[in-house]
């Protein structure tokens, strides 16, 4: 049961963008270089993120990306779901019907999977991009001190 590279890279890229676009727009080239993710792949992810109004782009020579909203108003869950779709551990709960021979309404495992999805969303929606930026700032500071020592 895994979240694909799409979800992982999207979240890392949005965090990176949030950190580096506070003053000026940021280019995908820079994000790509820092995160070691191909620019092509980032372009695909950002095109989805733009449609979901998580990031916004400005065209032109001085163009680039920034967050579409305040980092406090974007949750990690929103970013992951934008590229991964619903975070359901089984497909039957997205479709609302049993893919096997069973009766969906009478299936108890469906209730467990539903509950699992709720728990996944609860964890992912409990963290905003701003929380990640703050945490990243602290980690960077600590990293710098350790390096100095």
């Amino acid at each position: 049961m895994k979240i694909s590279t799409k979800g992982r890279y999207a979240l890392e890229a949005v965090l990176d963008l949030a950190v580096y676009s506070e003053v000026e727009l940021e280019s995908l080239n820079n994000i790509s270089e820092r995160l070691q993710i191909s620019k092509n792949y980032l372009e695909q992810l950002f095109s989805v993120l733009r449609k979901k109004e998580i990031v916004a782009s400005v065209r032109g020579a001085q163009g680039g990306y920034k967050l579409a909203r305040s980092s406090k108003q974007i949750t990690a869950g929103e970013v992951i779901r934008a590229v991964e779709g619903p975070l359901s551990p089984v497909s039957c709960i997205d479709e609302g019907k049993c893919n096997n021979t069973g009766e969906y309404k009478e299936c108890v495992t469906r209730l467990l999977w539903q509950k699992m999805m709720d728990e996944i969303n609860r964890a992912a929606d409990g963290v905003t991009i701003n929380d990640l930026v703050q945490s990243y700032g602290k980690m960077k500071k600590k990293d710098a001190i350790e390096y100095f020592i």
């Binding site: 964890a123 963290v127 929380d131 990243y136």
Partner: peptide, 29 residues
């Protein structure tokens, strides 16, 4: 990407939290 602070930050704040919630649930039921 273990040396990347960005991945470490996302892991600690998001992936580990999701894993924790999943494991708490299945070990309770």
């Amino acid at each position: 990407a273990e040396d990347s602070l960005i991945s470490a930050c996302v892991k600690e704040n998001v992936w580990d939290k999701i894993n924790e919630n999943i494991n708490l649930l299945v070990d309770k039921v």
